[in-house]
Amino acid sequence: MTYTKRLDGRKRFDELRPIEAKAGVIRRADGSAYFRIGRTIAYAAVYGPREMHPKYLQNPKGGVLRCNYNMMPFSGAGERVRPGGSRRSKEISMITEKALSSVVDLSDFPNAAVDVFIDLPQCDAGSRCAGICAASIALADAGIAMKDLIPAIAVGRVDDKIVADMDYQEEAYEDGPVADVPIAIVPSTGEITLLQMDGEIPKDMLMEAIQLGIKKCMEIYEIQKKALKDKYKALAEVVEP
């Protein structure tokens, strides 16, 4: 059987799963966000800028962004999901930090830290991208100075098709080669802040996939902007329905 149509019933190969984004969902955090893409759900909570501990990690030249990615123990099936951190979660925490730190400006906060906690109650592939999308909304919601929001999406290939936003079924496709390419961009400059690849893909397909990823990131960017604005619109509607 060859791969001729999306396994979850989507019409096009470049179609994203349904996306839902909300800002300000966690009351006690300084900023927070909810981001759902298909069956992958991410919550992000931002605390700070606050005093940094342990003290030896402090940077007197500016604040430090710390991210923590965590899949909840009940979030999926298989080997990946065990309570607590793992080599994988440590890697994703790091790449999230790097993807976001190019836009976040903490030079006004020497020796302080901004903590971002990303938790995923349900996963169906694309979780690091969902986490980055949620985290960037949450950072903006926390009033952190940043040049832009960061949208992220996984693109790739399944058999001979270039696809956007694969779910787990497609990622685990067995009758042909699969490649998974998560990508994050700075929309205002077009810079790429995250680019990873897992699987096998020839150069021309990779280039095409990256172009598709950038296009899809711009779609997600609009959803992120709307999520932040909707929070304040909702408050206005309380007064003038």
Binding site: D30, G31, G48, P49, R50, D105, A140, D141, A142, G143, I144, A145, M146, K147, D148, S188, L228, Y232
Partner: peptide
């Protein structure tokens, strides 16, 4: 000219600034 944080726009003649809505 782009926004560098979440805020309300204030235009004062030719100068554009933001009044932050959130942040510590």
């Amino acid at each position: 000219i782009r926004a560098a944080q979440l805020g309300l726009v204030r235009v004062d003649g030719k100068v554009i600034k933001l009044i932050p809505l959130a942040g510590r």
